[in-house]
């Protein structure tokens, strides 16, 4: 990687796949910094904010959303081909999102249960992470991602350095913020010990348990946490559902969740 040459404004696209649009708001919520960002890079495609030119070649493509339809499968190849760096933003693009729950069930039956004319729904039977289809250069976890994460990623790419990946457990951030542990002091079924930091320990700071919206941390011991949650009196299926939530498509959580669901069928 090399720093951006003086006078050149890197071209940026923000693409959306199967998602709620919430992660893109992390750009729009930048406030004054959004003006600064616009002076540093050129948003050539960002439908939620205005510019529409999905086919333009770009230096950085941010991708929100999971690959959920046959068209998505084709479109993500085109995005990859036209982008120098591809950055996934959020749980959907990075792990398949909440909608990846259908990978573990009979998706066709779900559609039939909900829609009057299921034939109108052109969904794949799976919802998958972008990295399962094309090479991803950087993954930003979170549901949603924060403005802080986006700014750090853009800044690092402009400098021409590798962005720092935050992989520690939420517990580290909790302790740095001097938050009293909600699991030890209140017996809450906190997912913090297996969950990636980046949120600033938001939920524990309000006295509630982490529900793993930033996905698995590095080296997560899901079995040890499972035993602990069982010790707190949480039923195995309920623990399984805590793993099979927003980031159910992330491998360590898929495995832990399915183990719990199958062991206790």
């Amino acid at each position: 990687m090399t720093p951006v040459a003086a006078g050149y404004k890197p071209q940026v696209a923000v693409h959306k796949f199967a998602s709620c649009d919430g992660c893109q708001l992390a750009f729009l919520n930048l406030g004054e910094d959004l003006l600064l960002l616009s002076s540093l890079v050129e948003f050539v495609h960002f439908a939620e904010a205005g510019p529409v030119n999905p086919e333009a070649p770009v230096d950085i493509a941010f991708v929100e959303g999971s690959i959920s339809t046959a068209k998505d499968v084709e479109r993500i190849q085109l995005v990859r081909a036209r982008s120098r760096f591809l950055v996934t933003i959020g749980a959907c693009a990075t792990a398949g999102g909440l909608q990846a729950l259908r990978n573990l069930a009979d998706g066709q039956a779900w559609i039939a249960d909900i829609y009057a004319i299921p034939a109108y729904v052109e969904s794949l039977m799976s919802s998958t992470a972008v990295a399962q289809h094309v090479k991803v250069d950087l993954e930003l976890w979170g549901c949603p991602v924060s403005s802080r994460q986006l700014v750090a990623a853009v800044r690092a790419l402009l400098f021409g350095v590798a962005p720092v990946e935050e992989r520690d457990k939420v517990c580290m951030e909790c302790k740095r913020s001097q938050i009293v542990c909600v699991m030890v002091a209140h017996g809450l079924p906190c997912m913090g010990p297996v969950t990636r930091t980046g949120c600033g320990a938001l939920c524990p700071s309000f006295g509630r348990d982490c529900y793993a919206c930033y996905g698995p941390a590095e080296n997560p011991n899901t079995q040890a946490l499972t035993r602990r949650l069982e010790g707190l009196g949480i039923a195995p299926a309920a623990i399984g559902r805590r793993f099979l939530s927003i980031n159910n498509g992330a491998a360590p959580f898929t495995e832990a969740g399915l183990r719990l669901m199958h062991d206790h069928d």
């Binding site: 520690d168 457990k169 517990c171 580290m172 302790k175 740095r176 542990c181 913090g192 010990p193 297996v194 080296n219 011991n221 079995q223 040890a224 946490l225 035993r227």
Partner: peptide
């Protein structure tokens, strides 16, 4: 290691 969460709570407190 089978029981440890490697969460860093011990070293932080």
């Amino acid at each position: 290691a089978g029981r440890c969460l490697a969460c860093g709570n011990c070293t932080s407190v």
